[in-house]
Design a protein around this nucleic acid. Structure first.
Lengths: 243, 243
DNA sequence: ACCTGAACACCGTTCAAGT
DNA sequence: ACCTGAACACCGTTCAAGT
């Protein structure tokens, strides 16, 4: 994969000689443990210290292999988003939708990672230039005016990341229970007098709609809304891309 | 405004009698100081302890007026997003675009707040039921099938929040300088052999495109891309909403 | 080369005590 | 009613020291 992970990095430990003991800790083991920790617990408990506990070492041992917490985050993102770019296709609209779905599936496998992407520019460290190039190719194929390529590209990325990031937003950890109760109360308090259409749809929207839910996409997925969203975008893009 | 802020809350301090000294601290003063702190410094330095320093009190004094850090965040969001819902209009497409732009302008006034919204369900505490109702009204007016209202609503919110959240994503604080250098290097390393279209557009895309930038929307705004994005969505929505 | 261990400068929140 | 102050259980990271 053409994923260029940059960032200051100590010289990688050289291959151990055959007879020598493998070092207990490796960069790969650290990143794998980080993903496991993020998956199994809340994102809030992904700390260098908990990671060290998981690995059975002192927190400071990690720093010999990887320079910072941010570097770990970049590596995690790079891993999670591996292979989401579809093979080239003659149908650019389907290609884009497949890309969007692949991104969502990747996040769904590691929902707690979602808040790390899109909201922090650190994630840029995990650049996949190949994905960018193929998006530009597909847009060209779609008849996008050359001078509009950069802006169309940005709209594509926003569509890819935006919905899913929100769908898998973090549930508050500390006061989760009473917070959920509060949200339920708000939803239950909607009155037909002041908010007639909302009141009529509250059954369908309760805990399934943005701003009106107390669970995230891991427990209450939003497949239909996602499909409508990417459909609207791709359909609209076709209309305006060549003008 | 019909913003219902929920959450456990100690009984609000009663109005002081005229002759009595106003209490030094109020809920409003705390929230205002929080916004100022988030605006003036990085989001990372918005801590209860720094907030207390700003207010000239002990950290624990804050807890008498507001129950938690999350409650402050909810109040901040509620404040920042005040009055973004446009007045009703006969042109539903323009109404939606105005909503999206209002949201973006609100965030642009307080860019460091962006990561708090969309990525944390706490933000749901600042529900503006009036906004939701008006979105549903506008969608109905647009000819949206009733059974599709909830999904269309979700797509609208995703569009409103998604782009802007990414545009104003956080720049890494600690290693900011060397991180920016790393990003510049990646961008400079793009070769025409392997990535021809990207290489051709790198001038336009460098530091102005998602995944290829080292500054966020506060320093490098993305107005054109935003306009293309919301245009594509609204245009596409019109096509599929009634089918 | 790789890890331990102490240390620094931080966190959010609870709770008893003051006035 | 409102704030102080100590305390608890945490953070990421640096740096000297061990082996």
């Amino acid at each position: 994969m053409s994923q260029a992970v940059v960032g200051r990095q100590r010289r990688a430990p050289r291959k151990a000689k055959p007879q020598a003991e493998q070092p207990g800790l490796t960069r790969e083991a650290i990143v794998a443990a980080a993903i496991k920790l993020i998956d199994d617990t809340e994102l809030e408990s992904f700390s260098m210290r908990n990671l060290a506990k998981e690995l059975g070492v002192y927190p400071t041992a990690i720093y010999w292999h990887i320079p910072s917490r941010n570097a770990i985050i970049a590596a995690v993102i790079s891993d999670v988003l591996r292979d989401i770019t579809p093979p080239l296709s003659s149908d650019w609209k389907e290609w884009l939708k497949t890309l969007f779905r692949n991104y969502r599936y990747a996040i769904r496998r590691h929902p707690n990672v979602a808040p790390l992407i899109g909201v922090q520019l650190v994630s840029n460290l995990s650049v996949d230039l190949g994905m960018i190039e193929r998006i530009l190719m597909i847009l060209t194929q779609a008849g996008c005016l050359p001078r509009r390529l950069p802006t169309a590209y940005n709209a594509v990325i926003a569509t890819m990341v935006g919905f899913t990031t929100q769908e898998f937003a973090m549930v508050p950890k500390e006061e989760a229970a009473e917070w959920a109760i509060g949200m339920r109360k708000v939803v239950a308090s909607v009155e037909a007098d002041s908010h007639p259409i909302l009141a009529q749809n509250i059954g369908e929207m309760s805990n399934k709609s943005f701003i009106l839910r107390w669970q995230n996409g891991a427990e209450a997925p939003m497949d239909d809304s996602f499909e409508l969203f990417i459909n609207a975008f791709v359909t609209g893009l076709e209309m305006i891309i060549g003008k």
